[in-house]
């Protein structure tokens, strides 16, 4: 067992490199997914049937095809068509498109669940549809969509593991390597723990975003209050903040 930990110590810099690649893919993929989600989510609500149809087609296509196959297609088929892409770029692109298509439905659904009265109030104040979305509807929809987005983000993190198929030395790849110097049980257990810790950190970050978004709507404490250790009812506050 000791030799396992020695081997782990020796492999640590490489494992951290792997974590770094996994994080880059996760954050890059999430940012691209969000951009795509908001764009498609808004387009899928348009009255114009062509615009709406276009958005729906993209959403359905990327939700309905396997992430692995999309990844292989971008990485192995595109070069044959003369388009050579960097592996990191391909990874982020495939993750962004796939999870963006899922998140687009979340964005669209949350926007539609902002109460009718809010839309009507913007009309009564003669706001343009862009002003209405940007200043009134989206900020409220944002608070509604965070829990689902948070879920998708964890899926995305786990989904990054498949990039090891396209020659990237991400966390999964490094854990696989660790197996050579240790054993299968040890290496994959280390892998599980690191993925779990990453997922937990992402969950905490998303929870903070949710506390902040709700506070902006006048519901619940501010992020500062939620994190504060000095507030009189500290125990309750910290617990609530971490759970909600």
């Amino acid at each position: 067992m000791d030799s396992n930990f020695e081997a782990l110590g020796a492999a640590l810099p490489r494992i951290l490199d792997g974590v770094w690649i996994t994080l880059q893919l996760t954050v890059g993929g999430a940012l691209l997914a969000m951009l795509i989600a908001v764009t498609l989510g808004l387009l899928a609500r348009q009255e114009n049937i062509l615009v709406r149809g276009f958005a729906r087609a993209i959403i359905e296509f990327f939700r309905g095809t396997s992430l692995v196959v999309q990844l292989f297609w971008f990485f192995f088929v595109l070069p044959q068509l003369g388009v050579e892409l960097d592996a990191m770029f391909v990874g982020i692109l495939a993750l962004g498109l796939n999870y963006g298509a899922y998140a687009a439905e979340v964005v669209r659904g949350s926007i539609n669940s902002v109460p009718q009265g809010q839309w009507e109030a913007t009309t009564a104040l003669s706001m343009t549809s862009a002003q209405r979305m940007r200043r009134v509807i989206f900020p409220q929809a944002w608070a509604l969509m965070i829990p689902s987005l948070s879920n998708l983000l964890i899926h995305l993190l786990k989904g990054t593991a498949i990039v090891s198929f396209i020659t990237m030395a991400d966390l999964t790849f490094r854990v696989d390597q660790l197996r050579i110097d240790t054993d299968t049980f040890f290496a994959y257990t280390v892998g599980l723990i690191i993925y779990f810790v990453l997922a937990y950190i992402l969950t905490l970050v998303m929870n903070m975003l949710e506390v902040q978004a709700k506070h902006r709507l006048g519901r619940g404490e501010s992020l500062r209050e939620a994190l504060s250790l000095r507030s009189p009812d500290t125990g309750v506050d910290a617990g609530e903040g971490a759970r909600s």
Binding site: G117, Q118, E120, A121, A124, V136, P139, Q140, R216, L217, G218, R219
Partner: peptide
């Protein structure tokens, strides 16, 4: 409006 419809954000 009957339901006020102030913007909560």
């Amino acid at each position: 409006f009957q339901q006020f419809n102030l913007f909560p954000n």
